[in-house]
Amino acid sequence: MQITVKVNGVAHTHDVEPRMLLVHFLRDVLNLTGTHIGCDTSQCGACTVLMNGKAVKSCTVFAVQADGAEITTIEGLARDGQLHPVQEGFWEMHGLQCGYCTPGMIMTAVDLLQRIPNPTEEQIRHYLEGNLCRCTGYHNIVRAVQYAAEKMRA
């Protein structure tokens, strides 16, 4: 089936099998390998991207469902060489170690901060429930999101 998906501002038209997951479309067809795969039960959130502005797990969306949608992946977050405040926060606060969960974690945090510009620590932890990190114990991820929130409010 032919689909057109706008990814990071660029429209891509491809013929895909209906069963192809969006995450494989991004990784294998568009070579956007920044979106990772960490599980097969929609738990870990490593594959999180923004679809029409909202965080979704691209392993739980068929590419055909994204036909006509606008997708932002981690590769499209920085603008004009300028890191997004959430990316900056992760770097500043040591919010990542191995970096495998990081793209998904960042994309979810972006959605969170769109909704709640000044989240409490509890809200941050709650909104990140769909993203598993095995390295950081989340301590510095929380700080990274707080950093970004402050920066974005400024």
Binding site: S42, G45, T48, M51, K54, A55, V56, K57, T60, V61, T108, D111, L112, H126, Y127, L128, E129, G130, N131
Partner: peptide
């Protein structure tokens, strides 16, 4: 709904 799944699940 706030305690269903997670943000990404609730979005879709």
């Amino acid at each position: 709904i706030d305690v269903i799944g997670d943000l990404q699940v609730r979005n879709l």
